[in-house]
Structures are given as C-alpha cells and as structure tokens.
Nucleic acid binder design. Sequence first.
RNA 1: GUCCCCAUCGUCUAGAGGCCCAGGACAUCAGCCUUUCACGCUGAAGACGCGGGUUCGAUUCCCGCUGGGGACGCCA
Length: 482
Amino acid sequence: MLDSPTRHLDPPQDPTPAMPPVTRFAPSPTGFLHIGGARTALFNWLYARHHGGRFLLRIEDTDRARSTEAAIAAILDGLAWLGLEWDGEVVYQFARAERHAEVARRLVAEGRAYYCYATPAELEEMRATARAEGRPLRYDGRWRDRDPAEAPEGVPPVVRMKAPQEGETTIADLVQGEVTVANAQLDDMVLLRADGTPTYMLSVVVDDHDMDITTVIRGDDHLTNAFRQTQLYRLCGWEPPAFAHIPLIHGPDGAKLSKRHGALGVEAYREMGYLPEALRNYLLRLGWAHGDDEIIPTDKAIEWFDLDGVGRSPARFDFDKLNHLNGHYIREADDARLAGLVAGSFEPAPSPAALGRLTAGMAGMKARAKTLKELAELGAFYVAERPLVLNEKAEKLLTAEALQALAALRPRLASLADWTAEAIEAEARAFAEAAGLKLGAVAQPLRAALTGSNVSPPIFEAAAILGRDETLARLDDRLAPP
RNA sequence: GUCCCCAUCGUCUAGAGGCCCAGGACAUCAGCCUUUCACGCUGAAGACGCGGGUUCGAUUCCCGCUGGGGACGCCA
C-alpha cells in the first residue's frame, strides 16, 4: 500500500484501532469562530464520531494581550449553534502554562534546549541578511553551544529547543501523504519567551501529549509547524500524534480566507439566515466527497466521513451553493421550527395569532426562500397590521380595472360557504370565467391587496390562512381608501 | 528570497491506466409546470494548464515548466 508515496498513506496507527481516536479543536480566542475554523471543528468532530472516539475542545489563550472573553463566548456559541458538541471539559491552555514551562526547564536541564540572549534587533538583522543572501529566514543558533557564562548582563533570555541541524524530518500526514523537509530549513524555535511564558509551539505539543490526542486535524497552514512540533515531540521523548492537514478555504479571489480577508464568523451566517445543518453540509463538501452525493445529512456524514475522502487542494467559498443547500434544508425543516426562527426578525414580535398564521403558511413559503431572511420577508404579510403598505409593483397591479374586478369579487367571497383555499380558488375561477377575465387578472390584484406585493405564496392559500374577516378588510382597504 | 503544498467545467467535486470523445452538484441558458415568484422536471452549453517521458494505452504514474496557495514571529 505504500508503493505510491504521494497518495494517501495508511494511518500510522492500526486502521481499526483498539484505542478509539481522540481529536481536538484548538482555536485561539482572538476573534469570532470563522468559517475555516468551523470546518476544521466539523472534520474533527466527524472523525471522532465516526470512529467512536472523543472530540475535545481546547482554547489556546496563551496570547494574553489578544485573547478575550467575548471571543471565547463567540467560539463556544458558534460550536453549539453548529451542533458540534465536544466531550469533557474545555481546556484553557493558559491555565497550564506552568506545566509547559516545566517541560521547557526539563529540556534545558537535559541539554535539549538552551537559553538564548539574542535581541529582537539581532534577529531582525539575521532575517535581513538571510533574505539578501538567499538563505532560509531562520535563527542562526548563535547561543546554541555558547557558554552561558558569556550571557550579557540584564538581558532576560528565551529558551530555544535544540533542533537537529542535519538530516531531515518526515511526517506521515493522513491527508498530505508523506512530507519531508530538510532540517537545515528549520531553526531552534523559541519555547519560552523572555518573560517565562510558553509559546504556542511548546503549548500545543505538551497539551496534545497530555490530552492523549491521537489525531491532529487542522488547517494546511500548520503543515510546516508540524515539522518543528515533531522535532519537539522527539526531544521530549514522546511519540507524535497522527497529523491530518486539511486544505484551507479560499475566498472568491483564491486567497486564504482569514479574519481580515473576507472570513465571516459563524454567527454572521446565522444572522444571514442559514440553517446549521445546511452550513454543515456545505462545509463538509468543501474538500471532502463521497462519490456523487451532495445532500448529506449529519447522520450520513458521521457514517461516511473519514480522512481518506479529504482532498488536498484548497476550495473557494461559494455562496450560490450554500444558498441552494440552505433552500433544500429549509424545505425539509419543520414548519413550527421555521416559524419560530423567523419570528425573531419581526419588530415587534408577532402575536400568537400571527405566529399561527406564519406556521400555517410555512408550507407555501418554504419552497420560495433560500434563507430565513427571505422566509421572513415572504411571511411579513401574515404578521403585518392593516392597512398594508404596498410595494411599487403591487401598486401598479391595482389598476382601475383591477379594482373593479376586486369590487365585484368581494361579495362573492363574503358569502362563500367554506373558507378554504380550494373554495376560494373555485370561486375566483368561476368569477373570472363569468367576467371574461383570465385568472391572473383576478389573482394578481388579489395578491397585491392581500400581501402588499406582486410576489407571494399561493394567494388562495394565503387568503384562507388570513381568514375571511382579514381578507375582506384588506380588500376594503384598497376598495374604499380612507 | 527559502521551503512546503496544490492543479478536472465559472465554482464544489467524481475519477486511484482502458468502464471517460470524462460523471454529479451549484451557477448560466432554453423549455415544461403554473394565479405571481419559487420548487420540481427536461434539455443545452461548459473542464482533464503546458511540455516531455513510462506504457499497447494516460485525466489517472514519473520529470520539468507554468500558474495558484501556504509557511518562514519572544501570534496562534
């Protein structure tokens, strides 16, 4: 199976592991949960659920200056909304800083790490000359073997790991295959900052080890980090986890979607009126496929998901497809649930009666909306108080002839025996035929009068749901304007 | 600059040497359905980046080129 090294490799661990996998999602709380992070979380969650393992959540808040409570809340809310529940307690990385520092100190004691007194200015100069000479931009290891006695006075040192300087480091990535880099490309990364706090590189390794993470599924942008981390695992005497670096999501312009480049938080998608199940389905299909299947509900996703289905090329985010999927899931969603979701967008909140009309009308509205926002606009006439404000197109529909027709139709509706969509339609058809009109010549004006718009759910159904009194009153508003 | 990754319709993808003059989905266009708009259905147009190999045979394997992306922090 390993005869084709560029193809996906078998997992380093047993394909049917006795030990179920442990994955984690490890966002840094420096902003909202953006769409790329959401997909990473989804893949980790699906992988764990598929294999009967555990999915853990760790907040990487070691950057004290940029981490915020609000961001933590946004991440937790976003995951909850998406339905990606994690197992166990949330781990806060900063709380484990002492443990991380202890590992670094142990490494120094063992001679596997060292104190480095190079100043930021020196490092900047190193990078500048390296760039000028066409060499990799890396720390030159000037304190690696230097006698600590030479340490300058009053300069607080950082701790750097002693990375191997020769040979190469290879990771067997579950998505990318086997990837190798020359150790000369890498440098002695900082483990502990001058103030004694651990860096991300140290913290992830220690935490992933301590949390027994078996499979690290994360964005492609971490691929090069994996080499350094692998070296650190070895220095610590630990076995690295399996890695799976999934391709990033790009914006329409093909560049990495980031917080400052077009990426939106999941709450933005919620506000735009997307259903979590639709977003999940969409995100899943970005970079992962199961034959020709497009509509993949979550239970199927759990059943089918595995890392061998993940592609290696980045995907662009496409709202058109998301909209289509969202429309599909709206059509499938429960009417009362939809009415409840849509109710929130009305100000003031709809009355119980209005909510009832929304729910009753949902069947006719569902197929006409791609988002909950559109659904709300479509259903606004069920909630609106008389007299309705007509839009321009509706206004135009109500010509003198049209009003004449409505005036003639009114008494027939008033005396209708059954107030059902079928009965109303039959009456309208009979009336149109008798008056020598096309059905549209009656239905469109009626639509304008009852909904205030030229576009709506089936108008006879709408009239039925509105009720006879409301229907006649809305008609009268047009027939006899005050 | 150095290293790494990627490369099938506009977009998301199927495809693991012959089943492919390349399949599905979104978007587009045309038609049907129809009280509007949708939904749905039918159909159309639309892609293997280029050049070398390997092979009886390459979208599929190898190399180069080109193009795109990512990483090179005492951020995560």
